[in-house]
Amino acid sequence: MTELPVLIYDGDCGFCTRSARLAERLPVRMRVQTWQEADLAAYRTTADRARHEVLWVAPSGRVFGGAAAVAELLKTCRPPWPVAGAVLSAPVVRTLAEWVYRWVAENRYRLPGGTPACRLPEEQRPGRGDRS
């Protein structure tokens, strides 16, 4: 679907923007763009999903979200990062990583670089409301 993998993040969130800038320093060729500027339909995803989690779109078109997106990003990097990605994908660690990711997503406005604009309305927070 795409030549390079794509990292899609929330450009309205200071914490997310800083995190994306850190990801750009990793040894991997990728495109980085905000969900607000991305053609989400072309990536077979939605604004609702992009509001809730960082997305990694593999060249195959497969979309990963949240902690799985971070793991896939790391697996795509040059060594030693793929080891970290594999660890994050391990069954027990994956569950813990997803829990930590969700906590960070819900509290990103409180974290360094976060602003009140980063706070998701209650109905849009991960694990709440209908995301179908």
Rank of each mutant, 00 (worst) to 15 (best):
59 P>G: 12
53 E>L: 01
109 Y>G: 14
115 T>P: 10
10 D>R: 14
28 V>L: 08
76 T>G: 06
119 R>M: 12
13 C>A: 04
60 S>Q: 12
73 L>T: 15
71 A>T: 11
41 A>H: 04
110 R>V: 09
73 L>M: 15
14 G>N: 05
110 R>Y: 04
94 R>W: 09
80 P>M: 01
84 A>V: 14
74 L>Y: 00
7 L>D: 04
93 V>S: 00
76 T>Q: 12
131 R>T: 08
29 R>C: 05
24 E>R: 05
112 P>D: 03
67 A>F: 00
3 E>P: 01
19 S>E: 01
92 V>R: 10
8 I>H: 10
91 P>K: 08
57 V>Y: 06
41 A>T: 08
122 E>T: 11
128 R>Y: 05
3 E>N: 04
84 A>N: 00
48 D>Y: 01
64 F>S: 15
49 R>S: 09
29 R>I: 01
83 V>A: 14
17 T>V: 13
40 L>M: 04
33 Q>P: 03
89 S>I: 00
98 E>A: 08
3 E>Y: 12
89 S>K: 06
44 R>K: 14
41 A>Q: 10
7 L>C: 13
75 K>P: 08
30 M>A: 15
78 R>K: 13
76 T>Y: 05
68 A>F: 03
21 R>G: 06
124 Q>A: 14
36 Q>F: 11
61 G>P: 00
59 P>I: 11
64 F>W: 13
28 V>I: 14
48 D>S: 01
7 L>W: 14
68 A>E: 15
113 G>S: 12
85 G>S: 13
33 Q>R: 10
111 L>W: 07
117 A>Y: 08
31 R>H: 02
126 P>H: 01
72 E>L: 04
84 A>T: 04
90 A>K: 09
83 V>D: 07
40 L>A: 10
130 D>S: 02
5 P>V: 06
94 R>D: 12
17 T>P: 07
